[in-house]
């Protein structure tokens, strides 16, 4: 029982990071029908920006314990802003020229962008793993044989907060409504005067910022980062988006949490060797049984 609870707690924390990244996939897929393969790399870059921001804010000279919550928040915000810019640049220079091209062209481009960012990162940050500064001091709490750290609680809380903020933004603001309009019908939205290019650009910015937030949380949790880490985590987050129903924001959140829990349960009860495999098994099962995902709706092709 305590294994179960322990894995559940760990799963929720990992899962909420997946969920944050999954939101970016789902928003971009919703608006453009594109699997933004490079999104995992945006997450990785966000993580590195956080690392450099922490050093810039004097992490080295101060002891870890005295790194103020204000500075930690600043690290998060800088990473989010930096990633947002990266996301907008990708959209502007790689995807926008292909709007209206056959559907596979943007997908291949996205794979190209993903490779490009990986290799730029290898050149810029070196291929060696770096450790993420512990800008929050870890405290352990014990409950009925289950260990919870303040960091895990923090990760969960920040994720939920950001997801609620996004939900509010998409449902209640004009721009959010414009995003939803574009996702239903891009040409019609344009005809109704929605500045589609600007809204799409903003979609990338928000998605990327959320991925960067995920990156910082991941750094706090795992403390190890490397230029190729975006690949696998990005893929898992994408699978989370598919599981929840791609294009659906709540679906991405639920999918992320479920994937995180499934992974940690596999690690806890079967073998950590199959931790990655379970995600792909889930992907295949969901695509074959319910391709529209848990919360998605079927769209039938018109004949």
């Amino acid at each position: 029982m305590s294994t179960f609870l322990q894995q559940l707690v760990n799963g929720l924390s990992v899962g909420s990071i997946y969920a944050l990244i999954a939101l970016g996939y789902t928003m971009v897929y919703g608006t453009l029908g594109l699997i933004n393969f490079a999104h995992g790399e945006v997450f990785m870059i966000g993580c590195y920006i956080g690392l450099y921001a922490a050093f810039w804010l004097g992490y080295e000279t101060l002891s870890a314990a005295s790194f103020s919550p204000m500075s930690a928040t600043l690290v998060l915000l800088l990473a989010m802003a930096g990633a947002a810019i990266v996301g907008m640049l990708i959209e502007r220079f790689a995807y926008r020229p292909l709007r209206g091209a056959p559907r596979l062209a943007p997908l291949i481009t996205a794979i190209g962008v993903s490779l490009l960012l990986q290799n730029i990162a290898v050149l810029a940050f070196s291929a060696n793993p770096r450790s993420f500064p512990s800008i929050i001091t870890e405290h352990r709490l014990e409950f009925a044989g289950v260990t919870i750290t303040n960091i895990k609680i923090f990760i969960f809380a920040v994720s939920i907060l950001l997801m609620l903020a996004l939900e509010f933004f998409v449902k209640k603001t004009w721009t959010g409504r414009a995003m939803r309009a574009i996702s239903v019908n891009l040409p019609a939205a344009k005809l109704m005067g929605v500045p589609a290019d600007r809204v799409i650009s903003l979609t990338f910015a928000i998605g990327s910022a959320l991925a960067a937030a995920g990156g910082i949380l991941f750094g706090l949790d795992q403390t190890k980062l490397e230029p190729l880490m975006g690949n696998m985590i990005g893929l898992k987050a994408f699978i989370a988006a598919v599981l929840g129903g791609i294009g659906n924001i709540r679906g991405a959140a639920i999918g992320g949490l479920l994937i995180g829990i499934a992974e940690l349960m596999t690690a806890g009860y079967i073998s950590s060797d199959y931790r990655d495999a379970i995600t792909f098994v889930i992907l295949i099962v969901i695509l074959l049984v319910r391709p529209q995902g848990l919360l998605g709706v079927v769209r039938q092709e018109k004949v």
Binding site: L34, I35, R103, L104, L107, L235, F238, I239, V242, D273, Y274, D276, A277, F280, V281, L283, I284, L287, L288, P291
Partner: peptide
């Protein structure tokens, strides 16, 4: 047999998933 019912980018992802599973096996 199971995955070719899917189209376009979904197929790309599911084949990628199968390849990863093969590699993990």
């Amino acid at each position: 047999a199971p995955s070719l019912r899917l189209r376009g980018d979904y197929l790309a992802i599911v084949t990628l998933g199968f390849a990863e599973i093969i590699r993990l096996i």
